[in-house]
Design a protein around this nucleic acid. Structure first.
Length: 347
DNA sequence: CACGCGTGGGC
DNA sequence: TGCCCAAGCGT
């Protein structure tokens, strides 16, 4: 049987019932695709439900403040997705009359949408035969065809996209695209793929040659940077604290945090108090204590953050801009959200 | 265009 | 435990 037919047949029996699959509304499909970038269905699902309830149309999303969108995105990671989603929602609502672009060529122009997402939306919503290539597709195709070209090399990206495009079902491109991804996620898994019950076991090169574990090939690994974070959790007499938005290019752009003293190594209380930032913030007397007994190691994909939370009690402070009762309104990285949970618990 | 961007789950 | 992985994209 044809590759695509086998896949679609498998899909008809094994597909997952997911809320966005009940619709071909490009707004819903778009939302789901952005949320699922580099994210498991199990992690993204509740966010999808929350977003579609709060923002049933692109106009509702466009009307929201960016900080509200980020707050709702809190915990899902890769926050530029939320900022780009919101940017594009405003563009669609205000400049396109709320009408989602209907071709791959137009869809990919939107901020936050690349080749994968444009292909997914164009095929699922508008029946355009544009093949998706995500992590699942790399795995399925590299194994089935026995391709050792690195999936994250320029040559690999091109080779797999071209191959995927030759395999797509021209009649049901959307179904085909979802089928190959579900097949990769549920059957041709990274570890312990279900080769013994596989509809491709007669023709899969990796299965035949016992190369499943070697494929797909991925080049080089990322190096992890170590950073040392000291957050100053301020409690003033009038029950306020200081939060500020992270600007610029690095991690957590648009999210809020406590005043941060970053150091090259682990530093102790004396060094905190002696630091320029601390003196600038607290020229007068304060009480300082370390909240966490052991330093918290927060692991991002490419940074390890060795973190201490220092509770600083002080008199009224002119820079204290946030009431403790309002602190939950601010979008914060999960590292800080977890701290706040612990901190509020102890009170 | 190689790199930076989060978080959580699985083994 | 440490490492890899997960419906990628912007710069």
């Amino acid at each position: 049987m044809k590759f695509s037919n086998t896949l679609i047949y498998w899909y008809l029996q094994n597909n997952r019932e997911l809320p966005w699959r009940k619709s071909k509304n490009p707004y819903f499909i778009w939302l789901s695709e952005i949320m699922l970038q580099q994210t498991r269905v199990a992690q993204g699902l509740s966010y999808y439900l929350k977003f579609t309830e709060a923002f049933p149309t692109v106009f509702d999303l466009a009307k929201a403040d960016e900080s509200t969108v980020l707050k709702m995105w809190q915990g899902l990671g890769y926050y530029s997705r939320a900022r780009n989603l919101h940017f594009s929602a405003k563009l669609i609502a205000n400049e396109l009359n709320g009408e989602f672009p209907s071709t791959y060529k137009e869809i990919i122009k939107l901020k936050g949408i690349g080749d994968y997402t444009a292909s997914a939306i164009a095929s699922i919503c508008f029946n355009e035969p544009t093949a998706v290539v995500d992590g699942n597709v790399y795995r399925v195709l590299s194994r089935y065809f026995g391709i050792f070209t690195a999936i994250n090399s320029t040559a690999g990206i091109k080779e797999f996209k071209t191959l995927a495009q030759t395999l797509i079902d021209e009649i049901k491109p959307g179904t085909y695209n979802q089928a190959i991804m579900d097949f990769g996620a549920l059957h041709c898994k990274p570890q312990n793929p279900l080769c013994n019950s596989c509809p491709f076991s007669e023709s899969c090169i990796a299965f035949e040659k016992k190369l499943t574990k070697e494929l797909p090939v991925k080049e080089k690994k990322i190096k992890v940077r170590k950073r040392y974070f000291n957050f100053l959790v301020i409690k003033t007499d009038d029950n306020k604290t200081i939060l500020s938005e992270r600007k610029g290019k690095g991690i957590w752009q648009g999210l809020y945090q406590f005043p941060l003293i970053e150091s090259e190594q682990i530093i102790n209380q004396e060094e905190i108090i002696a630091s320029e930032k601390f003196i600038d913030l607290f020229p007068n007397e304060t009480t300082i204590s370390l909240f966490n007994k052991k330093e918290i190691i927060h692991k991002l994909s490419h940074q390890h953050l060795y973190t201490n939370f220092w509770v600083v009690e002080t008199k009224k402070h002119k820079k204290a801009n946030v009431s403790w009762s309002k602190i939950e309104d601010f979008p914060v990285p999960i590292l800080i959200a977890n701290f706040l949970d612990q901190f509020q618990l102890k009170k």
